[in-house]
């Protein structure tokens, strides 16, 4: 096979980018779960996280890369900064772009238009305020490579991305399966009206769902910025790919989103080795079209509100 010679190298890269897709995809899938709505402005939540993390890290990093324990702290701060910026953006989005429509019982199409409008507004606002050029993240780590596995080089960035994503994915999975809020989210996803008869404040659950999706998406924005720079348009491609990942795994299905993200990351990297890197984005969207044609419910199926 065309990718066997670099198999491990491609796998490492695929898992790293795939775990980012997974983090973003969870934002789509959680919101879809409670509202049956694709939040197409989620890519801007991700972008806001990129800028939030960048600005915070710029304050913390001096002229030289700090390395060591300081690097760990700064990375954590960057993730938190990105997560908070993402959560704030998601919160405002829900209040301004969706809740007024919900109160009026607007048709589905209105939400889609509102989402696209909000997305255009947000990224143009970011472009105007923060400039339109790509901004690199300051160097945080002194060494680019951490270790080798099966002859494949694992970069510091890849390790940070995969490690942070893993922690957040496990935390989210436990939150949905085990906590009272998680149970409320699942109840709203399965039957919102009955959930309200059980005493669940649906509006509160929806707000918190947007915030959780925003935390994950915003953190992903910062992590993405470590490798690919931060720019006002940075949300678009990862956003659509994460949406693909969510559909691939089964929209509304939390574990499906994670699986879809990882599969997409891997396939994309193997595919690049077989064709050329120019095909990277084409592969992702071919997968989207194929899934929609062949198995629209995704790999794990559309099991809304499923706990495990």
């Amino acid at each position: 096979m065309c990718f066997t010679s670099q198999f491990w190298q491609l796998t490492v890269a695929g898992l790293a980018i795939g775990s980012l897709y997974a983090l973003i995809a969870l934002g789509y899938t959680l919101v879809y779960g409670v509202l049956q709505l694709i939040n197409f402005a989620h890519s801007e939540v991700f972008m806001a996280g990129g800028f939030g993390g960048l600005f915070l890290v710029r304050e913390l990093v001096g002229d030289t890369a700090p390395g060591g324990a300081a690097a760990v702290l700064i990375t954590t701060a960057g993730i938190l900064g990105g997560a908070l910026a993402g959560a704030g953006t998601a919160f405002v989005l829900e209040r301004t772009a969706y809740r007024p429509l919900r109160r009026r019982g607007a048709p589905r199409l209105a939400y889609l238009i509102s989402a696209i409008g909000a997305s255009l507004f947000l990224y143009n606002l970011a472009g105007k305020e923060f400039g339109r050029l790509a901004i690199p993240m300051p160097d945080i780590y002194t060494s680019g490579t951490v270790f080798h596995i099966f002859g494949a080089r694992v970069t510091t960035n890849q390790l940070v991305i995969a490690g942070a994503a893993l922690v957040m994915l496990i935390a989210l999975d436990r939150l949905v399966a085990k906590t009272r809020l998680g149970q409320g989210i699942r109840a709203v996803a399965q039957d919102a009206e009955t959930a309200s008869l059980m005493g669940v404040d649906i509006n509160k659950v929806i707000t918190l769902t947007f915030i959780i999706g925003g935390l994950l998406g915003g953190a992903a924005g910062f992590l993405y910025g470590l490798v690919f720079n931060v720019q006002y348009t940075m949300g678009f491609i990862p956003g659509v790919k994460a949406f693909t990942a969510a559909v691939l795994g089964g929209i509304g299905n939390v574990r499906g989103a994670v699986l879809g993200g990882l599969v997409l990351g891997l396939v994309e990297n193997y595919g690049v080795a077989c064709a050329s890197s120019a095909y990277r984005d084409i592969i992702a969207f071919m997968i989207l079209v194929l899934v929609l044609l062949v198995r629209p419910s995704g790999i794990l199926g559309e099991r809304l509100g499923r706990s495990a």
Partner: peptide, 14 residues
């Protein structure tokens, strides 16, 4: 209108 994909226990907890 029981929650179809929650256990009996979880339904009661709801």
């Amino acid at each position: 209108r029981v929650f179809p994909r929650m256990s009996v226990q979880e339904n009661l907890e709801m």
